[in-house]
Design a protein around this nucleic acid. Structure first.
Length: 1030
RNA sequence: GCCCAGGUGGUGGAAUUGGUAGACACGAAGGACUUAAAAUCCUUUGGCCAUUGCGGCCGUGCGGGUUCAAGUCCCGCCCUGGGUACCA
C-alpha cells in the first residue's frame, strides 16, 4: 500500500467534522487549556503560505495538550469588518457583507484542507448582529462608567452623580478632563444639558472635540496606530490633523495598570517593550513658573527637576492660548507671523522635514522659582501642545534639543551637572554631581531630583508627577462597514439606547459613500432614527472594536442573553496561549487588554489580563527571482569605458551626466566622447547642432553612434556622421562588441552585470534552483521572443531577493498547490521545520522535498517490501526503546518550549534509527504515531487505525518517558587538551572523578598529547567532559 | 538619535544551565538500480594544508577580556532587521 495523502487527508477531515472530534465542552474533571489564534481578516486574495504558520503551531500545541489530558478550547472566527470590502463596495456597489462572506467561505475551505483541530461550532464573525450586539453593549457600559483613581477601577456613573449631588466634585479623584471644582449646589443648579456635558468629561466612552488624524482620501479618521509616518497604514494616503467631534475611549485612565500588567504575563521582552514605549510613562515634576508683570503662571512638566538651576529660557507650544496673553506689544507682530507659519505646516511636513530649528521670543519673562532669575519665554514648535502642559523650562546644558535651540538663538547655557563636556553637545546622562545649583550643589542627580521635588512641594509651586505618552483612543469612523453606535441625540446631547433595543442593526444604504454634505454613509439610511424620532449616531466603530474581546465570546458564542455566562467564563477564564503576528503589538493587544480590564472592573470577566502567554510568529517572506535586462544605453557606456581603459589612463577621464542631455558622457583635456542616444535634436537641426558644438571647442570629438543598438534612424545616423566628418576634429568610433537592438538578458554571474542591467521580477514557477527555464520564460512574456540571453556555463542563473510576498513580485506561494503536490501533513511539518516560530524567514520550497521523503519513510515502517502491513507483537529491543524514548523526551520538551522545528528533526532522527533497526514492533510504532500526530494528524490517524484502533488518535494518551530505556552504562568522554578536543574514551557513567582522571591519563592516545610532560591540571566533569591542562 | 532583536557552512537552521561547534534538512559532487527518466538507495560535503594511511592548522561579524574551557559571560566597535521619534 502506497502513501496516498490525496485519499487519506480528506477522509480524516470528514471524520473529524462528522464526529465533532474537537468540540470543546465544559468538563470540571479536566483542567482547561485555551489556545487562541489571532482571527484573520478574510481578504480577497485567500491564504498564502505565511498565514497558516501560526495556526499550525497553535494546532500542534492544542492537539498535544488534548493528549496530555487537558480540556482544550481551540476556536476560530473572522475579523469581518474592514476597509477592503468597503472600498470594493464603493467601486462596484456590492454589499460588503456579500464580499466578506464569499471571502470567508474561501478561507474556510483553505483552512479545512490543512487539518486544523478547531471547534467550528464556536465560530464568531464580528459583523454578525448576534456578535456585535455585545460590542454595542460594552460601549454602553463604557459610557456609563468613570475611572476612580482612588480605587483604581471603573465605577458606575450613577454613583458619581449621587456624589455630585452631595459634595460636588471636591472628593472625586477621577481620570478626567474636568479640573474646575464645583459644589453640590452648583451641580444642582445646572440643567440636564449642562450636567450631561459635564459628565462627558468623566465617562470612559466620551464625545468631544478632538484633534484627530483625518485621512481625506479614505474619508475617515484614523487611530494613532493606524498612521505610519504621516500616512495611513492602509493605502498609504496622507493624513492631516483636524479638530472634530468624535467618540473616544478613555484608555489613558488605564495607563498604569496596562503597564503593571505586563509584569504578570509571559510575553516576549521585545513585545512588552513596544507596549511600554507606547504607554510611555515618565516620572518627573510639574512646576508653576511666575511670569514677570503677569498674574498668569506657566505650568511646565520636566523629568529633570534637578536641573532647574540650569534653566535659561522657557518654551511654549504655538497652539497654546497663553502665548497671545503674555506676548509683549513689541513682539506681537513677529509672534503672530510665527504662529501663522507654524499652523499652516501640515503634520507630514513637520515630520518629514529635516529638523529645522524655529521659534520666536514672546518678550515675556518667566521667573525661575528656585533662584528668582528672569528667563525669556519663547514660542517654538519643537514643544508639542499635546504632551505634558505644552510648555517647558529649557535646560540647554542637559537636553540635546534645548542645546541645539540655545546655540541657534545664542541663549545662555549653564552646566549644573558635572561629568560631561558641554562645549560641543549637551550632557544628558543622569549621572554626576550637581554644581551651580544653590542648595543642590554636591548632590548626586538622583538625590537632587528628590530634593527639588520636596522643595517645590514645600513651597506650594509644584509637585512630583507622572506623565504618559498614551493618548485616548479615537473611536469614531466615518465609514459604513462597521458596528453602529447604540447612540441617539436629543437636543444635541448623546444618549444610549436601552439594552433591550440591541443589537442596533447596520442599516441598508443606497451608496457606500459619504453624503453630499460630507456626513458619514449611515446618514444615507432611511429612517435612521429611534422610534421616537430622535436621530441616531451616523459614525461607526473602528476595526479594533470587534476584535477587542472576541476571545471572551468564544467561551459562550451562542448566548443571546449575556456576553457570556459566568459559568463558562469561570471555567475557561483566560487565554493560555495566544499566537499571532507582531503587527498587532501596539494596536489590538493594547485595546484588548484595556477592554478586558474594563470588563474585569465591572465584574463581567474574571481575569484582569486576557492573554497569559503570547507568541509572535514571524512572517514568511517570499523569495523573489530576478532576471537582468540589459540597459542598452548603459551597456554602450560600459563598453566605451572599457575601451577607454584599454587606450589609456582612465583617471584622466571624467564621466558627466549634466543637464540630463547626456551629450558629453566622457571627457578629458583633449577629447570629448559622445554617446548618441534616442533623445536628440530633430534631423534638420542635427548637422548644425554638432557643427556649432565642434566649432566652439578645441577638443577632439569622439562620437559613438549606437544606432545599431538603439532605435536610430539611418538618416539621423548619416547626418551625425556627416556633422562629424565636416570637421577635422571628429572621429567616428565603432566598437566591435556593440550588440544589435534586441532585449538582452544577462545571467547573474556575468562580469560587471550590475553596471548595465536592471533586475526584473520573474515568476518563481519558471525558475528551478535559480536556473531559469528559458522556454517557459519566453512563453510567459512573449514580448521577449527574440531576446538574447548571455549565459554562464550554458545556463541562465537568476538572482534572488527576500521580500514580502506579493502578487506584483511574482513570489506568492499558495498552500493549495503544495497540498495537492505533497499533502497537508508535509506542509504542516515543513512550515514548522523552516526555523524557530518567532523568526522572520524566507519561504523556499526546496526543502519541502526532504520532509516529504521523511513522511514516506515513516509510512514504510509499517509495511513490508510488498506493501503489506507488517507489524510484530514481539518485545521491542533495547535499541528500539532507546530510540523511541529519546524522542518522547525531546518532542515533549520541544513542544513545551515552542521549539517546533527541533521536534521535527528529532522525528527524522527517530525514523532514521527505527529504519536502520528494521523496527516493526507494534508498541514502538504505536507510541511514535501518537508523538507525531499533533504535527501530522492525517497520516497519524491512518496509521493509528492500521494499528487496529477504532477511535481517533486525538485523545490517545501522550506516551510516558521512561528514563531507564535511555540510560547507558558507558559515557563516551570527550578528552580535550588545553580546551581542544583530541579523542574520546568510553567510561562507566558511575565512575568516580579520580578513577576517570586515572583512566584518561593512562589511555594510549593521551600519552601522545602529554608527551612526557606532567599535566598541570585535570578537570573532570562527570558525564560531560575531561580537560587536561598541559 | 533612542529602544529592541539578531549576526554560526553554498542555504534554512542545531548546540536548552559556559563543557565534543555545524544536529536535522536543502543544495552540490560521485556512485548503484533503470533502455531512459522519475522514484529509491549508498558515499562525500565548514575552510586550508597533507593525502599512502595517520593526520595537522584555522574557524560562530570585528577587537580585547574573564575562565581549565566562550557561539554562549563581560567591555569596546561594525553590520542587518524591526519599533519609535522634537514626548521635555
Amino acid at each position: 500500500m502506497d502513501y496516498n495523502f490525496l485519499e487519506i487527508e480528506p477522509k480524516w477531515q470528514k471524520y473529524w467534522s462528522e464526529k465533532k472530534t474537537f468540540k470543546a465542552e465544559i468538563d470540571h474533571n479536566k483542567p482547561k487549556f485555551y489556545v487562541l489564534d489571532m482571527f484573520p481578516y478574510p481578504s480577497g486574495a485567500g491564504l498564502h503560505v505565511g498565514h497558516p504558520l501560526g495556526y499550525i503551531a497553535s494546532d500542534i500545541y492544542a492537539r498535544y495538550m488534548r493528549q496530555r489530558g487537558y480540556n482544550v478550547l481551540h476556536p476560530m472566527g473572522y475579523d469581518a469588518y474592514g476597509l477592503p470590502a468597503e472600498q470594493y463596495a464603493i467601486q462596484t456597489g456590492t454589499h460588503p457583507e456579500v464580499t466578506t462572506f464569499k471571502n470567508i467561505d474561501r478561507y474556510r475551505e483553505q483552512l479545512d484542507r490543512i487539518g486544523f483541530s478547531f471547534d467550528w461550532d464556536r465560530e464568531v464573525r464580528t459583523c454578525d448582529p448576534k456578535y456585535y450586539k455585545w460590542t454595542q453593549w460594552t460601549f454602553i457600559q463604557l459610557f456609563n462608567s468613570w475611572y476612580n483613581n482612588d480605587t483604581q477601577k471603573a465605577e458606575s456613573i450613577d454613583l458619581l452623580t449621587v456624589e455630585f449631588e452631595k459634595n460636588g466634585n471636591a472628593r472625586i479623584n477621577a481620570a478626567c478632563d474636568q479640573h474646575e471644582p464645583f459644589t453640590a449646589d452648583e451641580w444642582k443648579a445646572k440643567n440636564e444639558k449642562e450636567q450631561q456635558e459635564l459628565l462627558m468629561n468623566y465617562r470612559l466612552a466620551y464625545l468631544s472635540d478632538t484633534m484627530v488624524n483625518w485621512c481625506p482620501e479614505l474619508g475617515t479618521v484614523l487611530a494613532n496606530d493606524e498612521v505610519k509616518d504621516g500616512l495611513s497604514e492602509r493605502g498609504g494616503h496622507p493624513v492631516e490633523r483636524k479638530l472634530m467631534k468624535q467618540w473616544s475611549l478613555r484608555i489613558t485612565a488605564y495607563a498604569q495598570r496596562l503597564l503593571d500588567g505586563l509584569n504578570t504575563i509571559d510575553w516576549s521582552d521585545s513585545l512588552k517593550e513596544v507596549q511600554r514605549n507606547w504607554i510611555g510613562r515618565s516620572e518627573g515634576a510639574t512646576c508653576y513658573f511666575n511670569i514677570k508683570d503677569h498674574d498668569e503662571k506657566l505650568e511646565i512638566f520636566t523629568t529633570r527637576p534637578d536641573t532647574m538651576f540650569g534653566s535659561t529660557y522657557m518654551v511654549i507650544a504655538p497652539e497654546l492660548d497663553i502665548v497671545e496673553k503674555i506676548t509683549t506689544p513689541e513682539q506681537k507682530a513677529e509672534v503672530k507671523k510665527y504662529l501663522e507659519w507654524a499652523k499652516n505646516r501640515s503634520e507630514r511636513e513637520r515630520q518629514s522635514e529635516v529638523k529645522n530649528i524655529s521659534g520666536i521670543f514672546t518678550g515675556a519673562y518667566g521667573i525661575n522659582p528656585l533662584n528668582g532669575k528672569e528667563i525669556p519665554i519663547w514660542v517654538a514648535d519643537y514643544v508639542l501642545a499635546g504632551y505634558g502642559s505644552g510648555a517647558i523650562m529649557a535646560v540647554p546644558a542637559h537636553d540635546s534639543r534645548d542645546y541645539a535651540f540655545a546655540k541657534h538663538f545664542g541663549l545662555p547655557i549653564i552646566q549644573v551637572v558635572s561629568g560631561g563636556d558641554i562645549s560641543e553637545e549637551s550632557y544628558d546622562a543622569k549621572e554626576g554631581k550637581m554644581m551651580n545649583s544653590g542648595f543642590l550643589n554636591g548632590m548626586e542627580v538622583k538625590d537632587a531630583i528628590r530634593a527639588t521635588i520636596a522643595k517645590i512641594e514645600e513651597q506650594g509651586i509644584g509637585y512630583g508627577t507622572i506623565n504618559y505618552r498614551l493618548r485616548d483612543a479615537i473611536f469614531s469612523r466615518q465609514r459604513y462597514w462597521g458596528e453602529p453606535f447604540p447612540v441617539y441625540y436629543k437636543d444635541g446631547v448623546p444618549y444610549m439606547l436601552s439594552e433591550d433595543k440591541l443589537p442596533l442593526l447596520l442599516p441598508e444604504v443606497d451608496k457606500y459613500l459619504p453624503t453630499e454634505t460630507g456626513e458619514p454613509p449611515l446618514a444615507r439610511a432611511k429612517n435612521w432614527t429611534t422610534e421616537e424620532g430622535y436621530p441616531l449616531e451616523t459614525n461607526t466603530m473602528p476595526g479594533f472594536a470587534g476584535s477587542s474581546a472576541y476571545y471572551l465570546r468564544y467561551m459562550d458564542p451562542h448566548n443571546d442573553n449575556e456576553y457570556f455566562s459566568k459559568e463558562t467564563n469561570e471555567y475557561w477564564k483566560d487565554v493560555d496561549l495566544y499566537i499571532g503576528g507582531d503587527e498587532h503589538a501596539a494596536g489590538h493587544l493594547i485595546y484588548s487588554r484595556f477592554w478586558n480590564k474594563f470588563l474585569f472592573d465591572i465584574g463581567i470577566a474574571c481575569e484582569d489580563e486576557p492573554f497569559k502567554k503570547l507568541i509572535n510568529q514571524g512572517k514568511i517572506q517570499g523569495r523573489s527571482s530576478f532576471v537582468y535586462r540589459v540597459n542598452h544605453e548603459k551597456y554602450a557606456e560600459y563598453l566605451l569605458w572599457e575601451y577607454i581603459k584599454q587606450i589609456g589612463d582612465e583617471k584622466k577621464w571624467i564621466r558627466d551626466y549634466r543637464d540630463g542631455h547626456r551629450k558629453f558622457d566622457f571627457y578629458n583635456e583633449e577629447v570629448n566622447l559622445i554617446i548618441e542616444i534616442k533623445s536628440q535634436p530633430k534631423l534638420e537641426k542635427l548637422e548644425s547642432y554638432y557643427e556649432e558644438y565642434i566649432k566652439s571647442t578645441d577638443k577632439k570629438l569622439l562620437l559613438l553612434p549606437i544606432a545599431d543598438i538603439i532605435d536610430m534612424d539611418e538618416e539621423i545616423m548619416e547626418a551625425t556622421k556627416k556633422a562629424v566628418e565636416n570637421t577635422d576634429k571628429g572621429v567616428i568610433f565603432n566598437h566591435h562588441e556593440i550588440r544589435p537592438l534586441k532585449p538582452i538578458f544577462v545571467s547573474k554571474g556575468v562580469k560587471d552585470r550590475k553596471l548595465f542591467s536592471t533586475p526584473l521580477h520573474v515568476d518563481i514557477d519558471l525558475v528551478e534552483n535559480d536556473i531559469l527555464n528559458l522556454e517557459s520564460f519566453v512563453s510567459w512574456r512573449p514580448e521577449f521572443n527574440d531576446a538574447e540571453f548571455i549565459l554562464e556555463d550554458g545556463k541562465y542563473r537568476c538572482g534572488y531577493e527576500i521580500e514580502k510576498m506579493s502578487k506584483s513580485k511574482h513570489n506568492i506561494q499558495n498552500p493549495d498547490a503544495l497540498i495537492e503536490k505533497y499533502g497537508a501533513d508535509t506542509l504542516r511539518l515543513y512550515e514548522m521545520f523552516l526555523g524557530p516560530l518567532e523568526n522572520h524567514k524566507p519561504w523556499d520550497t526546496k526543502g519541502i522535498e526532504g520532509v516529504f521523503r521523511f513522511i514516506k519513510k515513516l509510512w514504510k515502517l509499517y509495511f513490508d517490501d510488498e506493501g503489506n502491513i507488517a507489524l510484530s507483537d514481539a518485545e521491542p529491543t533495547k535499541e528500539e526503546l532507546k530510540a523511541l524514548h529519546k524522542t518522547i523526551k525531546k518532542v515533549k520538551d520541544d513542544i513545551e518550549r515552542f521549539s517546533f522545528n527541533t521536534a521535527v528533526s528529532s522525528f527524522m532522527i527517530c525514523v532514521n534509527e527505527l529504519k536502520d533497526l528494521k523496527c516493526n514492533k507494534r508498541s514502538v510504532l504505536s507510541d511514535f504515531c501518537i508523538l507525531i500526530s499533533s504535527y501530522a494528524p492525517h497520516i497519524a490517524e491512518e496509521l493509528w487505525s492500521i494499528l487496529g484502533n477504532q477511535e481517533s488518535i486525538t485523545y490517545a494518551k501522550f506516551p510516558e518517558f521512561k528514563e531507564e530505556y535511555v540510560k547507558e552504562n558507558d559515557y563516551s568522554y570527550p578528552v580535550s587538551f588545553n580546551g581542544k578536543m583530541r579523542f574520546k574514551i568510553d567510561l562507566p557513567v558511575d565512575m568516580s572523578k579520580d578513577d576517570i582522571e586515572k583512566a584518561v591519563l593512562e589511555a594510549e592516545e593521551a600519552q601522545k598529547w602529554i608527551a612526557g610532560k606532567t599535566p598541570r591540571k585535570v578537570i573532570v566533569v562527570s558525564n560531560k567532559i575531561v580537560n587536561i591542562v598541559i
